[in-house]
């Protein structure tokens, strides 16, 4: 029976790999195009199977966008993106989880109204408040800073709600016990709710990390100089009103994707470890 089990696992894994490759095949197209040196070749090949094939792979596009002579100060943009991402993720984890916890465990009378209010705030489409908000931050004098790219996102209705939903699953007995021992409201959050819900923390870190990394319209509106501008906005430099520089655009997209992948793998580790540790405890 053991052996049969293992073989089944094996088949499952192989099938998942094959299916997974089909799923990500559109991204192969991006990778292949980024290795084509001739932009006109890319345009000629588009729309046929040749888009997936490259005869003479070249790293020229990567060299061009990363070289120090490039007008795009790519390294600076990269650093800016990292700073914004770090600030946004840590901020969200703290602010939104505290709010989610308070909404679940709190006793203040306003909480009953707050939850629906916060969820309905998520409904507001960003496109519709972007302009008034831009006018505001320009008046407050915080445009063209890191902080203006971080603050609007760290109290996130959707992640407050996510934490709230995950916290609801924590057995009441756990916190009851802690309360009887005299633990404060804050300590129950910090020492019980957060650690036990590591999967929620990791989930939010990953999702908010993606969001922060790919944020486009907002940084476009509130940054004016290279000093604080993120990578996603820099990518816009490869397309003008008429022409798109496919070669460099594809290479830059690959460069943009890699750090997110590393970030994801890093947090995945926590994810898998947290399962292992609960298993040991149990």
């Amino acid at each position: 029976m053991r052996v049969g089990q293992e073989r089944k696992e094996m088949i499952k894994t192989v099938l998942l790999i094959v299916f997974g490759i089909i799923i990500v095949s559109p991204l192969v197209l991006m990778l292949v195009s980024s290795l084509k040196d001739d932009m006109y070749q890319i345009m000629e090949d588009m729309g046929s199977i040749r888009a997936f094939m490259v005869t003479e792979p070249s790293m020229n596009n990567y060299r061009e966008i990363l070289s120090s002579e490039s007008v795009q100060n790519f390294k600076r943009f990269f650093l800016n993106s990292i700073i914004v991402l770090t600030g946004t993720v840590t901020g969200t984890l703290l602010i939104s989880s505290m709010a989610g916890y308070t909404l679940h465990r709190g006793t203040l009378a306003i909480h009953k109204f707050l939850l629906p209010l916060i969820i309905s705030l998520y409904i507001i489409p960003m496109e519709s408040i972007m302009l008034p908000l831009m006018y505001q931050v320009m008046k407050w004098g915080i445009s063209d800073t890191y902080i203006v790219q971080i603050l609007p996102f760290i109290a996130s209705p959707i992640y407050i709600f996510l934490f709230y939903q995950f916290f609801r699953q924590v057995p009441i007995s756990l916190s009851e016990a802690a309360m009887i021992e005299g633990a404060s409201f804050w300590r129950i959050y910090w020492e019980i709710f957060l650690p036990i819900n590591r999967s929620a923390v990791v989930t939010v870190a990953i999702l908010q990390g993606m969001d922060a990394w790919n944020q486009y319209l907002w940084p476009l509106l509130v940054t004016q100089t290279e000093r604080v501008r993120p990578m996603s906005v820099a990518l816009a430099s490869f397309s003008g009103t008429g022409v798109v520089y496919w070669d460099r655009l594809m290479a830059a997209s690959v460069v943009m994707l890699l750090p997110v992948l590393v970030f994801f793998l890093f947090f995945q580790k926590f994810f898998i470890q947290s399962v292992a540790s609960t298993a040991v405890k149990g």
């Binding site: 602010i95 707050l114 916060i118 705030l121 603050l151 109290a155 209705p157 404060s184 804050w186």
Partner: peptide
């Protein structure tokens, strides 16, 4: 009562930010 003060402190940052960056521009619109 002490806990309620903690409670308020923990939710206040989120409320202030939501007000400034979501509710306020929304009301303006």
């Amino acid at each position: 009562g002490h806990d309620q003060r903690q409670e308020l402190l923990m939710i206040l940052p989120a409320l202030i930010l939501l007000f400034l960056f979501l509710l306020l521009p929304f009301l303006m619109s």
